[in-house]
Design a protein around this nucleic acid. Sequence first.
DNA 1: CAGTGAGCGAGCTTCCGCTTGACTT
Length: 782
Amino acid sequence: MAKSLKNLLIVESPAKAKTIEKILGGDFEVKSCYGHIRDLEKNDMGIDINNHFAPRYIVPEEKEKVVKELKSLAKKSGEVWLATDEDREGEAISWHLCEVLGLNPADTKRIVFHEITKPAIRAAVEQPRTLDMNLVNAQQARRILDRIVGFELSPVLWRKMSMRNNLSAGRVQSVAVRLIAEREREINAFKSIGTFKVEALFAAKDISGKPVNFKAEGSRYPAAQDAENFLQSCIGAIYSVKDIQVKPGRKSPAAPFTTSTLQQEASRKMGYSVSRTMMLAQKLYENGHITYMRTDSVNLSEVAVKDISEKISVQYGKEYLQNRKFKNKNESAQEAHEAIRPTSMDTLQVEDTDCRKLYELIWKRTIASQMADAELEKTTAKIGISTNKEELTAHGEVLKFEGFLKVYREDRDEEDIEEEAAEGVLPPLAVGQQPEFKEMKAVERFSRPAPRFTEASLVKKLEELGIGRPSTYAPTISTILKRGYVEKRDKEGVKRDFRILVLKSDKITKLTEQETTGAEKSKLFPTDLGLVVTDFLKQYFENIMDYGFTARIEGEFDEVAQGKMKWNKMLEDFYTPFKQEVNKTIETAERIKGERELGVDSSTGKPVVARMGRYGPMVQIGSTEDEEKPRFAKLKATQSIETISLEEALDLFRLPRNLGKFEDADVSVSIGRFGPYLAHDKKFYSLPKEFDPYQVTLDEATPIIVEKRKAKEERTIKIFEKEKIQVLRGPYGPYLKQGLRNYKLSKEQQERAADLTPEEALKTIEELKANPPRKTARKKKA
DNA sequence: CAGTGAGCGAGCTTCCGCTTGACTT
């Protein structure tokens, strides 16, 4: 009788499975399928396009083990319950499970819950439903469309680009690169404008009678002369308070964390990369400290709200408690999970420092979300000037009740910070009062372009556009970095002069000071490759590259999910014009060069161009049609096709430089595939970083050669000339080298490396060639 | 390890979203 058998309940995550098994107890065996168990075959797109886009699914190799186990458990079980996530992907996973485990979708129990709490799970088991095939079809449409876009566009790039990188394009990654590319161009085109901002310093007595300084702001003047005229007009003036406004203000806490807001705050507060945050969160989740970390929901379960409320009452007092329900701003959210929160608000010691910092951040954000508003008092004082009609404004802000700010304050991105009115405490002022005038300044301030994206601010932007999902933000960033479309790096700022006019003791002084501008840390920069590929895709595939494309097709997926549209009809409508564009592009588009004319080389009269070559960005003097062969030079890592000047380009041709003779052989310096190097007597020595290949002298170069030669000798234990094998000393101990390849010695062989015979070395290499030690798939090189 | 850049063609690459370990270096 089936009753005696256990029920098998399948969820996506193994950590979830453990928790649920505890809640459901004896009748249920809870197992995990580890996400998707089937995917489209890779050959020939895995889609029969001419047969109404029929997908060809396979179980990937790495999923075979799980599938086998679930199959055998399903056979032995009384009933199978599908409890995958309540969203499009979760519904599809359940359907794939039916297909693979041989279950009938019409009578297999499908249950859902948004939170892993006892009441939610009990309630779910009471109300099983069956699979929603419309939702499954919406997922299939999503999957197939992404496969089509990716597997049609990428090969176009392979054909049209001369680089041998494994280029790729896709609905999400290509738009992510576009955002970074356009921001860069915006910055390059930005014309900074200086204006003079008036700021006066006064003093008045505070409550205890002590004089304190405070600031008041005046107008901005576009020209230095206007600012000077204004200061001039203030000479000898009397300043008096004309008006005082006191207004209450409030600040409310931010919603509990989702994946993207957690990534943003961890980046702003701790400087974690997006993938680091996810790794740490994964650990916290597996140890049962926090709820699921890939979510777009800001919702907290009732049980959690109760726990949080109690904690606030006990730890901070009842006046700090204010329960709130947050709504998701984002339309594309699927909300299959809760917000990210601690599983319990009890104080908890997390061992690992980085994990602890992230845990504490989550704890504080969660607690703060149910705390009272902070109450402020904002004071604005207008100060009149006796000699002219202008008024100065002083702002003050006093915190009356700290509320949630006692625990947590959200940081802001550079992008969102407007120049702030000076905040702080104003001394008590009265209308008619004449505060003591100290000085007035007009400081030149320059407008700034939007800052470059950080990983986290890119995620924020993508989420706003509805592009990508919590589980893909980190992988998307890895992809565009790996493809070389984007680089993460620092940029040194440049020094800039700015002017200050100071009015003090009825005299105006003019000063010039220096500031650093344009410095960036850990920002995303597009490479020339990224810029060129983006331009190409924008030109030929405007629709896919449009920032609204995902939102539009999401609307159609929703219609499929509601049963208002057939999924293969939707794909048909998308595919027909898209495929035409692909074909047209393959036929008509020129190879992607990204060429930019820089001018004429004055010494030869030949044109100079910057462009993409087989090995990356380069400059070229003369053309291939000329009788004389053109000259080529590679751009430096910090240079770009778009911004390099003729002068900088010509400078690159100063290499190779012959430095002179050393030990009867020429010493020359150049930049090669692996950076700057010295060449001498047919041997190469890489040039240490502190030397500039354009500046280095023979006297500096010879010690480097001598030094490197010595180091190499010290590394060499033995050389077997005939076998062309070297026994070398490396950072992990002695090893063998033959040609370009290294071979590991066994521990025992390492100990007697100096006594190895050529025969044994040869044998070792043969054996290692026959059985390469690493199991991980390695890429074949042509 | 080291100076390439044209074009041809073999054989290969590639997407997004769900999930975690198993792998060395």
